[in-house]
Design a protein around this nucleic acid. Structure first.
Lengths: 135, 135
DNA sequence: TTAAAACCATATAGTCACTATAAGGTCAAC
DNA sequence: GTTGACCTTATAGTGACTATATGGTTTTAA
């Protein structure tokens, strides 16, 4: 399988595949005589794993860590679970921060209606005043 | 006021101040004979405005746009409100996406308990399977 | 047969909003 | 006169790609 076919199969850009290879997430495939990369099914599984991790918003470093666990299958899996727990905490604190931000933005927005001049804009006044609450 | 004092006053790094100047968000200040930047109170207000916008997670491009409105105070302010509305939508869709992600992660995490070997880890199996729901 | 298109390769720069580092000039205090 | 704190510029790094430039190869169509 060449890189374009792999890209099509998994639904990734060919550039991204080469990028993952450079980052050490995808093993370097064999090459044809002309230098074209040749991929096996193992590569496509590995790439699909990476993509699913990215959908879960895991960083490339975290994916790398998961791969190291996979390559040593007789370790206890507590570390995998801990990685996921940390990631869940991370996502939750992002949500909390964004919810606080949303509140602040909505209250700022409520301080103006359309049909004013910029000079009298409640939104701009609200930002310009030092009265903003830190999150 | 020199750059270090401005940085102290507003609570920003000196590098960040120079960065904002290069980006065109902060006007180039006058210089002393030795080349040191000299800031006025107008600069500190402008910088504080930028910082408060950044706390609201507005992009530098959006801040630039707001500055253009400020520099032309007799326009209607509907565009300012629209900018904020767009930003609120953006934040809300981030929240929605993260909440969906959290759900997915929590259900993945529930598929494993500690004390297994990596080989039998429910989390890794869950990611490896193609059964993941797209968000 | 040849010429265009589709594919492959590498290397490099751009995105965003900084942050870090290097290498050096200026100034006040001791 | 030298130490330390401050200032200057320029350049590179962050993360995870994405875009562009330039050129080689293969396939397809006229």
């Amino acid at each position: 399988m060449r890189i374009g076919q792999l890209a099509e199969l998994v639904g990734v850009d060919t550039q991204t595949i080469r990028f993952y290879e450079r980052q050490g997430l995808l093993p370097s495939p064999d090459r044809q005589e002309n230098g074209y990369r040749v991929y096996t099914e193992e590569h496509s599984e590995r790439l699909a794993f990476i993509c699913r991790c990215r959908i879960l918003d895991l960083s490339l470093a975290e994916i790398h860590e998961l791969q190291r666990y996979q390559d040593d299958p007789h370790q206890p899996c507590a570390a995998v679970n801990a990685l996921l727990d940390d990631h869940i905490s991370h996502v939750r604190s992002q949500i909390t921060a964004l919810q606080a931000l949303e509140k602040q933005l909505v209250s700022l927005r409520a301080s103006c209606n359309d049909g004013r001049e910029v000079e009298a804009c409640g939104v701009l006044a609200g930002i310009s005043e030092g009265s903003m609450h830190q999150q």
